[in-house]
């Protein structure tokens, strides 16, 4: 299976947008070589603002740039771009609906070596709780490109969660990405799995092994966590014995939370695979760390069996 780094795709897309629209500006907090915003700096040094290690000032400065008609993208690791400047994102940017784009890079456990301080388990929850905020979680490099292009077009604040590592392609290069749309990636009639980010390919893997046991799993990629199309979720869930959600995020307030909110009036049992209210930790490899937190195909398969009452 071919793979590509999502942050590389992110940086390349910023450059693409920069060529098409002179109002695209990029702000960075000294992590440009990680977020890959540095690619934009090389081509558009006048529209790239290194704000150094001062994320709060970066966010409010972006608010000011948006007030002059620019489309600023602010960049840092997801823990910092959501946690360190939460108040700035809330007060000036979101209350007024300013056109600021927020990149949460090295999200989830994907920065496996750096440990709990640099791994974001709650960024989706934080951003989802802010009124007017759009929250995107692309599944692969193709969808990253399409999502970044879509967020640049959509007026108002928008957060994108970017994985640090190379991930397998799930979508086609010329996909039909639209903000708010749900994307079924495998059909099946027994259990419905809603997943996003790295957990989509894990869910597909789980579906493959469950098929051998005669269990048909439908897998839906949810790259837009907010706004979530509640009617589409309800329509998709109708007829299934149970729903499983899978995310590289705390089970509190992320994708599972969003699906549970949408399903709260519909009687379909739901179970969440995610990080069980814990912080991250250092590891020598990404898969090793995901396994430590139960974010594996096997864990999803086991949860599906449990929801079907099988062992």
């Amino acid at each position: 299976m071919t793979t590509k780094s999502l942050r590389q795709a992110y940086g390349e897309t910023l450059v693409e947008l920069g060529r098409e629209n002179k109002n695209i500006v990029v702000l960075e907090a000294d992590l440009g070589k990680s977020t890959m915003s540095i690619l934009f700096q090389k081509e558009f040094p006048d529209r790239y603002f290194e704000m150094s290690i001062a994320e709060a000032n970066m966010a409010s400065t972006a608010a000011g740039l948006a007030l002059t008609g620019k489309i600023p993208f602010i960049n840092s690791f997801a823990v910092f771009s959501t946690g360190r400047c939460f108040d700035q994102l809330r007060q000036t940017i979101s209350i007024a609906g300013l056109n600021v784009k927020i990149c949460g890079s090295s999200a989830g456990l994907s920065d496996y070596g750096d440990g709990s301080t640099h791994q974001s388990v709650e960024d989706m929850a934080i951003m989802r709780a802010i009124p007017k905020m759009t929250v995107l979680v692309p599944v692969d490099a193709h969808q990253t490109r399409q999502a970044v292009r879509a967020m640049a077009k959509r007026p108002g604040p928008c957060y994108i969660r970017i994985n640090r590592n190379e991930l397998p392609f799930v979508t086609a290069e010329q996909g039909d990405f639209e903000i708010g749309k749900l994307y079924p990636v495998r059909d099946g009639g027994d259990i419905l799995v809603f997943a996003n980010g790295v957990m989509v390919s894990k869910a597909l893997e789980a579906a493959d092994s469950l098929a051998k046991e005669g269990i048909a799993v439908k897998v839906v990629n949810v790259p837009t966590v907010k706004p979530l199309d509640k009617q589409a979720v309800l329509a998709m869930a109708a007829g299934f014995k149970a729903i499983v959600t899978a995310e590289e995020h705390s089970v509190i307030g992320g994708l599972g939370g969003a699906i549970a909110e949408a399903m709260s009036e519909a009687p379909v049992p739901l179970s969440m695979v995610g990080i069980e209210d814990r912080f991250g930790t250092s590891a020598t490899g990404y898969d090793e760390l995901l396994a430590c937190y139960g974010l594996t195909a096997d864990a999803i398969a086991a949860r599906v069996r449990k929801m079907l009452g099988r062992r």
Binding site: A56, S60, T61, A63, G64, L65, T68
Partner: peptide
């Protein structure tokens, strides 16, 4: 002051 800086940069 940060917001003002951003406006000043944009102008």
């Amino acid at each position: 002051l940060s917001i003002g800086s951003g406006i000043a940069l944009g102008l």
